[in-house]
Design a protein around this nucleic acid. Structure first.
Lengths: 319, 319
DNA sequence: CTGTTAGCGCTTTCAT
DNA sequence: ATGAAAGCGCTAACAG
């Protein structure tokens, strides 16, 4: 019994001969170790929980793949839960994940509220926030600087001489994709000495159609924008097509830029200029950080901000 | 002890008063049930394993969402493993999933080989194949008829009077997306009395770029095709852009049709005509089927083939 | 309706 | 280097 456990767990204190015998018996009997029993006895499940807004969203799916690849590399499995950025659902899945005795938790969600903090505190396993902002700064996290990414995108527009630049934003309730990018937009205008104009920002829902809708509104304006900053690729592509469908040209008439740089950015004509957000890496790095935390290795910086960069393609005039 | 177990599991044999007392104690102590211990004792983990080719692929991500939604509805969690349609990886994750004592398994992969069957046989939990073909027909499965979907797509081209229709295929080693769709293409030609022409099919890798590459090849042909059937949306969009980049028009010069009808199909100009493959439903239905199997309910048809349909948009001439 | 008692299949001391 | 024995935290008879 104990010896079998030793060989299965690669404990060196087994004579090679008996080790071999055990392996043979395992083979012959078709023995399969019970990971649940092992988990109960060892208090380790080698599985981590990941709460994600929506796996069918290309951006998050990319993060998930980064997570899973690294998890796999360190022999962890992942329990995946969609929570749609809904607080209640998030809290609920965090708790069931904790009940399942995951060795760690990767949280990708909307705002991190007091209730979230409460739930996190009751966990006695490490947690890292992934592509999610943490105002309090108490929980390890890995993300990009969304405000700055937006700032850089808008600034690149301004640098091309645009002065009327509109924004298609996500909901301002969303701290990272929504609020932060909106703030970056405002700061870029402000820095350039351009007055903020309320009529130039539309709130979308991250979907293609809402990009098209926003653009239709902008085109109807008395003094239409010459450039549009979209909070995400998908809305940007919707915007490009909206502009084209209205008989205008991108970027000749209206330039479009976004933040994300998903694979989709190259799948449109003109190809989309965007500030790249390294989604796969965000997933991979956060999982790597979590493995360190789970092994109780001490990490120097538990709040990592990955770099973003402008990827110039053809949707902005003059670049 | 036992009474606590009863209230936590909603066993009716508890006096309301004691039930209340237990809840209070749970609250006060911050007691959290240990699902691992519960799993060991009850031999049920309320988690199902899902092996998927690649979660970052939009098509599979959509299936995954369908799976997770239904799983959630029935209070199951899912352990997600990418296996990239690699046999070895698939076998490996099937085994670790089984070690983790999942209550059921959803398998989405490449070919189902003898080795897979072997692994499945050792499982004493139900398994359903999801968006994966099963030649032997022994394992419950839910999918569309890929051969027929391809046939219908190509036939719709033929019905518009096209006679030189090319195909951008996936690898023929892939039973569903590759081989089956290729067979459907051939059968449609044959039925219409059109000779199969080897030079008119290119093997892609499902990616956008391979669609573009294939089209560049087709355009260079002495007698170029007037229509292209792509095995997937993404390659079709690559094809459309390749055609446009070459100064030709879709569908005036070359028509394009595909199978999938992912959200992407509407995100291109002209919008892509495609045979719709109901990915979300495939996931949802297969998970639903699995729940029935796990509850040992008897199911009438354990091999379900979901319907597909032609969604006409603007990429085919004359429709 | 509630408490007692065995396990579930492992890991982990502790002996040997 | 190996075996014996005691749990891990729960569920599931079984009494009462």
């Amino acid at each position: 019994m104990a010896t079998v456990s030793r060989v299965v767990n690669n404990n060196p204190n087994v004579k090679p001969a008996t080790r071999k015998k055990v392996y043979e018996a395992i083979e012959r009997l078709g023995y399969r170790p019970n990971a649940v029993a092992r988990g109960l006895a060892s208090k380790k499940t080698t599985t981590v929980g990941v709460v994600i807004p929506d796996i069918s969203n290309a951006i998050f799916a990319e993060v998930a793949r980064g997570i899973e690849d690294i998890a796999n590399m360190y022999h962890y499995n992942i329990i995946l839960c969609n929570a749609d950025k809904k607080k209640d659902k998030e809290i609920r899945v965090i708790n069931t994940l904790l009940e399942k005795q995951v060795d760690g938790l990767l949280f990708m969600g909307g705002a991190v509220t007091e209730e979230h903090m409460q739930a996190f505190k009751t966990a006695n396993v490490p947690i890292v926030l992934c592509a999610t902002s943490d105002e309090s700064g108490q929980i390890p996290s890995v993300d990009i600087n969304h405000e700055e990414a937006a700032y850089d995108a808008v600034k690149s527009l301004l640098d091309q001489g645009h002065t009327r630049v509109a924004m298609i934003s996500g909901t301002l309730q969303d701290p990272s994709l929504g609020y932060a990018r909106y703030q970056g937009y405002k700061r870029a205008l402000e820095t350039a000495g351009i007055a903020y104009d309320d009529t130039l920002v539309r709130i979308g829902n991250y979907r293609y159609e809402s990009g098209t809708d926003a653009v239709n509104y902008f085109i109807g304006l008395d003094s239409r924008p010459t450039a549009i900053f979209s909070a995400t690729d998908e809305m940007a592509i919707g915007a490009i097509h909206g502009i084209q469908d209205a008989g205008l040209k991108v970027p000749a008439d209206i330039s479009v830029i976004s933040v994300d740089n998903s694979r989709m950015a190259s799948m449109v004509r003109p190809q989309l200029t965007a500030v790249a957000q390294p989604m796969y890496d965000i997933g991979a790095v956060s999982m790597r950080l979590l493995t360190k935390l789970m092994k109780k290795e001490n990490v120097d910086h538990s709040k990592v901000v990955l770099p973003h960069e402008l990827v110039v393609r053809q949707s902005v005039r003059g670049q």
